[in-house]
């Protein structure tokens, strides 16, 4: 019998680690394959210029996606980020352009409005006990968009001061500041999620809300923090956007939440909560950006791009389903 025990332990470990590897780096392998293929298909793809372009293009979605990761980790969702982005930049435009107040105040207002709507999402979920964040954030999605249109009479605002445009517009050498911001934000989120008590609690709540509650975790408090941060990141993404296009318009960020969700899911997070990483999300956002950029270089129309991204989402999740089915069987 002892023979059988020895027999069973070692190879299991080996197999497990291979699957573990695939599970952990599946999205990265996808990104690498995509890069190699595009390099062959277009000689313009693998140039410093183009890569920096991708870095810049990906930054708004990357910021929204890292915010989105938190609700998804708790088995929730935030549909309102695109609208929160819009209301954040419109209020910033009113403060800093229309009213001519200081750009610093404008930036603070932009981030604060984002965080405030996120807080509202959190309160609706935990205090009104709405059954699912899909509903509360669907509500705020419409509210925020509506207010953004009302307060600006649906007109865009242009001519932002340099300080506001800095993040989205400037470069350090060849590297866009917005991408450096993304890297910085992701490092902070990585530490937050893996090393702080609240970060660990986010995983616990997504894994088993009741067990988390009975383990002394103030679930409501953590959820409020989660949605507030998601809103804050929408505000920050808006700030980058204004820098890139030097204007704010009330329909900005329309349906951006879907790209953010796609990035998180492609990056390996589970829709059922408790599973997902910061770096996976970054890779997810990069895959979307590389795909868009590559298809552009190949002169594929925007309509086709949409369909392709849809296929990638389904394929990425299907790979994950296969992997899980395998690991359950064993």
């Amino acid at each position: 019998m002892s023979e059988a025990v020895i027999e069973k332990e070692k190879p299991v470990g080996e197999k497990k680690s291979f699957k573990h590897f695939l599970g952990k780096f599946g999205a990265l392998i996808g990104l690498i394959i995509l890069t190699v293929v595009l390099t062959f298909l277009s000689d313009k793809f693998l140039t410093v210029n183009n890569l920096m372009n991708i870095a810049r293009q990906s930054s708004i979605n990357a910021l929204l996606a890292i915010g989105m990761l938190l609700p998804i980790l708790t088995a929730g969702i935030d549909l309102s980020v695109g609208s929160i982005l819009a209301i954040s930049i419109m209020t910033m435009g009113i403060v800093s352009v229309n009213m001519g107040m200081s750009p610093v105040l404008g930036i603070i207002v932009c981030l604060a409005v984002g965080a405030a709507f996120g807080l509202l999402n959190g309160l609706l979920l935990t205090k009104l006990r709405l059954p699912h964040p899909f509903i509360s954030t669907l509500g705020t999605m419409n509210i925020a968009r509506g207010i953004a249109l009302i307060i600006t009479a649906a007109a865009p605002i242009a001519g932002f001061p340099y300080l506001i445009q800095f993040l989205g517009r400037e470069f350090v050498g060849p590297i866009p500041v917005s991408f450096l911001l993304v890297i910085g934000v992701y490092i902070v989120f990585h530490i937050f999620l893996t090393r702080t008590q609240t970060g660990r609690y986010i995983y616990a709540i997504g894994g088993n809300k009741e067990a988390a509650h009975l383990s002394g975790i103030n679930v409501d408090r953590v959820l409020i923090i989660v949605y507030t941060i998601s809103g804050l990141m929408a505000g920050l993404a808006g700030l980058v956007m204004v820098g890139r296009v030097n204007s704010a318009f009330p329909l900005a960020g329309l349906s951006y939440e879907l790209d953010a969700i796609a990035a998180v899911i492609i990056g390996g997070a589970s829709f059922f909560g408790g599973v997902g990483t910061v770096w996976g999300t970054l890779i997810g956002a990069m895959i979307i950006a590389v795909l868009r950029n590559g298809l552009n270089l190949l002169n594929v129309s925007a309509d086709f791009q949409m369909a392709v991204i849809g296929i990638v989402i389904i394929a990425a999740v299907y790979v994950d389903v296969l992997r899980q089915r395998n690991s359950k069987k064993n």
């Binding site: 008590q197 660990r200 995983y203 616990a204 894994g207 067990a211 988390a212 009975l214 383990s215 408790g274």
Partner: peptide, 27 residues
Amino acid sequence: FITEDRKSEGLLLDQPLDFNIGLANMK
């Protein structure tokens, strides 16, 4: 409180043991 139902009230089933064990006293 060692709850009646380990799976639905006691454990984070898809998290490693160390995470589960440290959960109630992370402080």
